[in-house]
Design a protein around this nucleic acid. Structure first.
Length: 226
DNA sequence: AGCCAGGACTGAG
DNA sequence: CTCAGTCATGGC
């Protein structure tokens, strides 16, 4: 069976198992962007504390954020780790958004690739963060790849291209993974939204770095049933 | 006591 | 172009 069919089947299995995930957690586009930056290599529970601190100071607002000192922002987001870098990234994003008078409608009103390139030009925003913002804040269909995605699918022999597997970490490029999913699914933001959320849910439950994913009951069932 | 979490960037070689 | 090193807190 080819990867395309496996990817579609696994989606149904995961959705049937976990149900709808209602992502992204957060109730405004600004909060989603903030969370996407703060969650870089960080447990979500820590991000929630940092977001709460920002909320208490009315700083889920990029205009206000730009008028707040680095040291104050860094102190508020301390629970999410890497607070100096992330405070800088938040400022860089805010500075970029000022070009659009802090109007996300205007910023998001361009095609996906242009938006993506703009996001990638902002220091501290890499591919995963850019794509999370595009999918979950701008509501445009782009498939988000993260460590869980690579881990779960590569351990189940579903990988892009035909490169030799050397190490788990950097076998394939980010965009190879992204295009594998995008070319296998209907290009629909609701589907991409749910699928990535389900992958994270699966990863959190069953596919941590250890124990190995081979011991993941769900994925094992998936693999066997395909 | 480590090890890891919904990454990104830099400088060496 | 690879890739180890760096950034950093809190939970298990």
């Amino acid at each position: 069976m080819n990867n395309k069919r496996k990817i579609n089947i696994i989606y149904r299995l995961l959705f049937n198992h976990f149900g709808p995930q209602h992502w992204w957690p957060g109730n405004s586009r600004e909060e989603i962007i903030t969370g996407a930056i703060l969650t870089q290599n960080t447990a979500w529970a820590n991000v929630e504390k940092a977001v709460h601190n920002l909320k208490s100071n009315n700083l889920i607002n990029f205009h206000s954020l730009l008028n707040t000192s680095h040291s104050k922002v860094a102190a508020l987001i301390k629970p999410s780790g890497y607070f100096n870098q992330k405070a800088e990234t938040l400022h860089c994003f805010a500075r970029h958004l000022s070009i659009y008078d802090f109007d996300l409608n205007r910023f998001f009103n361009q095609n996906i690739l242009e938006l993506r390139n703009e996001l990638l030009s902002i220091r501290g925003i890499g591919r995963e963060t850019a794509d999370s913002i595009i999918l979950y804040s701008a509501n445009k269909p782009i498939f988000v790849i993260d460590a869980y995605t690579r881990r779960i699918f590569s351990r189940n022999k579903i990988t892009p291209g035909s490169k030799i597997i050397v190490a788990e970490k950097r076998k394939y490029e980010y965009d190879d993974w992204r295009l594998m999913f995008e070319s296998s699914l209907e290009k629909e933001n609701k589907l991409f939204n749910e699928y990535h959320a389900l992958i994270v849910q699966t990863g959190k439950n069953f596919c941590k770095t250890r124990p190995l994913c081979n011991q993941c009951p769900l994925i094992k069932v998936c693999a066997e049933s395909i």
